[in-house]
Write a protein that binds this DNA or RNA. Structure first.
Lengths: 222, 222
DNA sequence: CTGCATCCGGGCCGATACTG
DNA sequence: CAGTATCGGCCCGGATGCAG
């Protein structure tokens, strides 16, 4: 990428990770080292040459290292982008109320929602195990000791199992969609959905900054 | 910008602010409403049509509003990008040790450094007033009550006055450059530079994540 | 003079094909 | 599986024009 040529920390950061797809590559690697093919699968829409370009560029900048045998991983400095990625994710939460539509979804992206929605320890949070079937692979959401984890795979004794389209399942977990609405949107609930409220001891719907007004569907301005 | 087409908060955030220059426009507006010409002056290198494009796009997304008479300002949602911008700035701090070189600099960009370096209240921090002459306009750094502020303009009774190139002055304030080195780099110090250590009660040099290795100057890979 | 719109050259992006 | 090669098209960037 062409440098902004500004002696400013933000500009220099964007010189490194401001390229298209760069932060999404980091998003994938924040979940652990990945092979090239796994990255391709987790980044639907990227062209293979672009992925190769980004990986080289991020490697040159010291964000990514290539382990022996084409395993890519973040450097310690690169892992510092965790705060950036999740700050952006939290900021964009109002945008997630728009339905997924034709957007792609991968089950491991759920972890960004879990971090954004349930970050930190809240001792008033109840214990709960939710198995989530949305996307290619099942995921397990575990609330224990006031903290919420998300792991890949199934769980032995889930309190609730949710299956359905990603936006409706996520809305149900976040408390933004009622149980009835979620079922109407195609979510199959196995277990007592009311227990989901244990995840949100504030009882209120998660606070939301003033949502952006939807862009007019009336096409481009004259 | 072409949408990533992913139902993921990060991807949707980047659909809105992932365009080139977009976050730098936000950086400027985080300091308050600005006219078109002021934005141009604060964004050296941007083409005027690109600035117009970005402002329209950010307006359509609900990040920016255009006040009466072409004053641009952030919406409340847009101001939520504060965390994102400063997270990126903090992450890029190791990149600032590379000298400014031919990079542009604007004095109001100093505020990002102040936020990154001295964020939060530390009661052990001593009081101090530093007048900084670097860039077009003088800035005043005020440490009071354990908190560090930065304002545009001069201060009546500065303890220290610093004048010189931005990288050396900033290095001196951050404690990464010694007084002697700073003067050798062209910084003129009026007052007792040792008092600058009052800003950093930890006494140690600001903690730094593992710095990125410099990209090899040996040109592009074969 | 400010606040854009228009008009190109060049480079990055994106899809497909291809190779070890 | 892990990329490289190629090519059209769009976005970016710089210069210029123009209206209030």
């Amino acid at each position: 990428m062409r440098s902004y040529g500004q002696y400013c920390a933000l500009a220099r950061a964007l010189d490194v990770v401001g390229d298209r797809w760069a932060l999404l590559v980091v998003r994938e690697l924040l979940q652990g080292p990945r092979r090239y093919g796994e990255l391709l699968a987790g980044l639907p829409g990227i062209a293979t040459n672009l992925l190769a370009d980004r990986l080289r560029s991020l490697e040159d900048s010291g964000v990514v290292t290539r382990d022996q045998g084409a395993e890519y991983a973040l450097t310690p400095w690169g892992e510092g982008l965790h705060d950036v990625v999740y700050a952006l994710g939290r900021w964009a939460r109002p945008l997630m109320s728009r339905p997924a539509g034709t957007d792609e979804f991968r089950s491991h992206w759920l972890s960004s929602f879990v971090v954004a929605l349930f970050e930190g320890v809240d001792p008033r949070r109840g214990d709960l195990a939710v198995e989530i079937h949305v996307g290619e692979r099942p995921m397990a959401l575990i609330s224990s000791g006031g903290r919420v984890h998300l792991t890949a795979g199934t769980t032995s004794t889930p309190d609730i199992t949710l299956t359905g389209p990603p936006d409706a399942v996520i809305g149900l977990i976040a408390g933004a969609v009622s149980r009835g609405d979620a079922e109407h949107l195609g979510v199959v609930i196995d277990g007592d959905a009311r227990a989901l409220s244990r995840l949100r001891p504030d009882s209120a719907v998660s606070p939301r900054l003033s949502p952006p007004r939807q862009p007019e569907a009336s096409g481009k301005r004259p």
